[in-house]
Every structure is written in structure tokens, then in C-alpha cells.
Amino acid sequence: MSDRGYPDAVADEFPPPPTAFTDREDRRIEVRPYEGDPAARESLVEMYDAFDPADRAQGIPPGGEERIREWLDAILADDCYNVIAWCDDAAAGHATLVPDGDAYELAIFVHQEYQRAGIGTHLIRGLLGHGQANGVEKVWLTVERWNRAAVSLYKKIGFETSDAESFELEMGLRLRADGETAAEGDASATPDESDADE
């Protein structure tokens, strides 16, 4: 891909998971990293199999169990970073960082049943905290420009638009200064209430 733009300023420290909170529907939600557990993978298959096609973005998640499994094989690989929002044993949301050269591409999905409850904000902060703790420097994403809820979530997190000339907006975030090594940060989690679930 072509050179992508990132903000000069380094983003805040995000809280590394596991984190837990009560969502706006009074459900207890835990955000935990995915670490190769087959049962967690099956929960994701279930979540995506029940995903409303209207909430697909640029072709993902794909439709049908077989394609979902193929896609998950790629994004749950060892060189990717994944976090899952759990409501008891059910996956309510999932966010992922997939390597792309010296940066990572981000995507986040919250199941319909759990949208507009503030889970997306906690989930993306958890993912970025997980990435930061593992030395991820730069993150980019694309988002359909009409998806205002998602765009405002990303902006609130600190993403800046790097390319606005296509159907999709491209946005970038700098998690660490170039070459900075993983250091202890005083992660101050400010749980903010947003309607901006993707």
C-alpha cells in the first residue's frame, strides 16, 4: 500500500486488558485479550455468524460460517493482536490489529445486541492498550464516511484523517514515538460514555 499518514503527536496511554465495566444496559462486560483459546474462537464464529449483514463494512465480516472461519484464521494469527468483549460466555464484541508492514490495520465489531451501550469505546481502548503494551507504534484504519458513529469514536480516541479522497476515509493513530521501546506508563482509564459503537 502507499505511504500512510499518522499524527505527529503520540496518543495517550490506553489501559491494557483485562478490564471490566458495566455497560449502559447494566450488563457486566469484560475485555480480555484473545490468546489462542479454541473456545474463544468458537464464540467469535458464533458472534459473526449471527452478525447483521447491514453492519458489514467493506466486505467484513464475511457471510457464512466457512468464510468466517477462513477470515478468522487470518486475523487471529500469532502476529495479530485481538481483544474480545465478553458478556458471560458470549462474545459481545471483537477488535483486532493485523500487521501491515511497520504498522497495523485496525477493525472493531460490536454485535447488534450490544451496540449503543458504550462497549465499543472500552473495546477499542482495550485493543490499543494491548497493542501499546506489545510495542505497536502505528495503527491505521478505513471507515465508510457515512458511518458517523464510527468516525466520531475514532476521532475521540485520537485518530486523525490521513486520506479523505476516496469513498472510505483513512485514519491513522500513533501509539508510540518511532523506535520507542515498551515502557511502563501510568494508564489512567477514563471510562467515557459514547454512543459511538461501530
Partner: peptide
């Protein structure tokens, strides 16, 4: 084009 994530961009 398909991104590493599997997203399609035109």
C-alpha cells in the same frame, strides 16, 4: 484492493 484485514477498498 483487499487490505491485510480483508477490507475491500475501491
Amino acid at each position: 484492493h483487499t487490505s491485510p484485514m480483508g477490507k475491500i477498498t475501491i
